[in-house]
Design a protein around this nucleic acid. Sequence first.
RNA 1: GCCCACGUGGUGGAAUUGGUAGACACGCUAGGUUCAGGACCUAGUGCUCGUUUAGGGCGUGGAGGUUCGAGUCCUCUCGUGGGCACCA
Length: 952
Amino acid sequence: MQIDYASIEKKWKERWEQDGVYRVSHDDPRPKYYVLDMFPYPSGSGLHVGHPLGYIASDIVSRYKRMDGYNVLHPMGYDAFGLPAEQYAVQTGIHPAISTEDNINRYRNQLLNLGFSYDWSREVKTCDPRFYKWTQWIFLQLFHHYYDTERNTARPVAELIASFEANGTHGVHAAHSYEGTFDATTWQAMTPKEQDDVLMNYRLAYRKISYVNWCEALGTVLANDEVKDGVSERGGYPVERKAMLQWSLRITAYAERLLRDLDDLEWTDAMKTIQSNWIGRSEGAEVEFPVRGRDASIRVFTTRPDTIFGATFMVLAPEHPLVAEITTPDQQLEVRAYQEQAALRSERERIADVKEISGVFTGAFAVNPVTGRSIPVWAADYVLMDYGTGAIMAVPGDDTRDGAFARHFDLPIVEVIDRSAFPDAEVGDKVGTLQNSDFLNGMEIPEAIEATLRHIETQGLGVRTVQYKLRDAIYSRQRYWGEPIPILYDQDGVAHAMDVQELPHELPMLDDFQPSGTSSPLARLPEWVDAGNGMTRETDTMPGYAGSSWYFLRYMDPYSDDVFASPEAIAYWKDVDLYIGGTEHAVGHLMYSRFWHKFLYDKGLVPTVEPFRKLINQGMIQGVIEYLYMYKEKVDGYTKFLCARLAAQHPEELFARIPILVTVVENYGTPDSYLSTRSIEQLIAWRPEYEDAIFECSKGVYHRGTFTPRDGAAGSHLYTDSEVGKMGKRYHNAVNPDTVVAEYGADCFRMYEMFLGPIDQSKPWDTNNIDGVSRFIRRFWNLFHSDQDAWQVTENEPSGEELKILHGTIKRVREDIERYSFNTCVSHFMTATNELKKLGTTSRAILDPLVRLIAPFAPFISEALWEQLGGSGSVHLTDYPKFDASLLIESTITYPVCINGKKRTEADFTADASPADIEQVVLALEAVQKWIDGKTVRKVIVVPKRMINIVV
RNA sequence: GCCCACGUGGUGGAAUUGGUAGACACGCUAGGUUCAGGACCUAGUGCUCGUUUAGGGCGUGGAGGUUCGAGUCCUCUCGUGGGCACCA
């Protein structure tokens, strides 16, 4: 019995396309449901079996919801701007537009092969000018707005200008980068450039000189979430801190809302925790410490104002502007040397040297405002310029870092917390009572914090504040393949937004993509840079996250040229009901999208505060990685490989561990993976440069087609190292879904990926289990067909037992789809098929609903069977089966009756009475009378549907 | 170092959320069948005691606790994975 998957799939793919089965419109009376996949970056190596995992899950939900009466928006598109395409262009000279288009076409075909129910007419690409016109437009809206911290909403910059004209900064409550006050006359006296600079302090998209993550190798700056462990996330190149004039987005203005609104989202706790840690809210106070003998004061941020009596010195970040001002002449040289050294250190070195204590005394003293004592002011790089105020009051008695610093430089330490009642507590733990702290003595810490806050506020020493770790997002990229920033500069350097009519501001064609120093390749096009009228264009482009921060809105109305999406479409589709994608976007894409969405909400352009109501993070499908040990130096002029087990006896510096094509390895993925003589030949066929290489096995040496055994041993085992890790091109272990589909069919591939385990778990790709799913599909098919491939569905009345199996399965499958447990759904199908097979079911009344039930999982064979059943149109447009609860209730249920949890007997009860009924309990008591004779019944516990337990 | 999540057979994983642990599948064992293929069918399969049977004991990383009852809740501990990392 053979099922011709290929022709079934071809036929239905064409039919779906022709009939527009998955086309949707917002002009529809049904309730909407929006299922979104994180759109892929179309890389050169195509999809591997790991990519579709989330797409299969979202497709199942889409099909299920569609059959269950919803109007389902389920679109797909491409995140098409970005570094890899440009790096590829640098290497090959092929224009990114061309390679990207090729990659997109390959991706689309691969996705089509898997039978996804996307509305392909809504496909978007972020590199399409019709799309990025609106990316640029939203950027300009950010440019034209500031954040009103009193009304908690974005407001037009024009209103801010009006305020400045009338009252200067008086009465203005706006999120800003640095403090600065002025009055109306000062504002009116400013030059346009000076006014522009002031406005940049408030705009939500602004330009300023700031310390940024500069990556020399990539020739661009990177946002914080694009840097991991001091190296670039893409490519792993070193990143240094550099002061540059850059565009940024004021995401910090939304920090509080981004944090607070997490509560209402149906995201995993892990995801919410990552985001809230990234936002990093801490409550505390800013306190002023006057500098002795100078008209200056140092403002510090602290979360522990209660420890202020223990503040015995102060530390400023080396870049802190006050350092130069307060340093005494005799400390000048030393301080300047320290500042220079700190500036030169790369981010990576700084992280590596965390445990090294360094710092320098400025010679200046400040006054502790509560003790009135003079305390020395130091500069040290353990204080960061861009957190808090860039300065701290050091409390060596209750902070481990301050303590270490004090001991290292022999500074005074005052113990302000008495922790004697908590022997296990460590320095910095918020337990204990205050000591050596004047009016705070004897208080518990929370009480002392509150008392100190009141004190400093009434005395005018400082104010309560909230700090966030979240930083503004650097928005400029000095690269070619991205959206041009639609800004022009006049001769004075004042930034001017382009008009909406001038958008899209198209990316000009270029054939030299080589990065050049600190400016974009676009700067090499003088005729493009010159915008006429003495204006010049911004040459930086937008970062990778620009387009993806709002693409889900464009799907709602992908064609409009007048708006980013029509108000009608947005009013109907509202937000994403279910979003599926990987955890790797936790702090990048998902944070920026939420920020943009909130801004658009403030503008009244979207109806919801949050873009993604429910988020599921699919796990990664991992691959087996096989490594071979290669000598770093050539041996006698030859490349030499060594068996893993022999390599283990040698110092590891001798070798490079190189990943090789997994499929040439025998027993790959096991501890006994090895290369045989034959597989060495396959390896050479794959990498001809190793034709001359020497392979030293456990039992001899293989060289140029000849195996020379040692000590007369026969056979060669060149053991390799197996590991489970990422699937991808560089590990030579990527499995293309197309080949799996060609062998087993798309339905089998889909169900297999779901069957592997819970959607949110990572798991290795393991082809052993796929046969089990393939067998199931054949068994399922054979419920409908006899051994001779004859159609055997009858009009027989189904038996009660058959109906029970069917409705039990419908109930479980519906419930499990609703809780996104797709692996158990597949199990339910298997169980039902096994049971129905045993009963010899051929009844249409059972098999017809069964086909509809499985349709979201196996879209192709369900269409084929549906057609044979004589159903009209596509099975995916029929109703999803509903279960009849009455069929599931048994007329008599036998309950175990237990005494003290020990089962004693069983008793029959009728189903329509709840076992909780007194009558039932009496029945139970009678049933166990002989065991409870003479004992008092203390209580009777009725476990619904389970048992009756009598405690004596 | 701090925060979060997770530990169930030989393997992937179920367990209606405190109610018969191990569904479903892989693998394995035995038997059958086949144009001999990595196909198909049937039965068995947590560990252990018991000659087979009947039956018993032990079992969800470890140690305690709550409960008539714990894989599930609480405390401690060990292990794995992830996030953050001089954040004052």
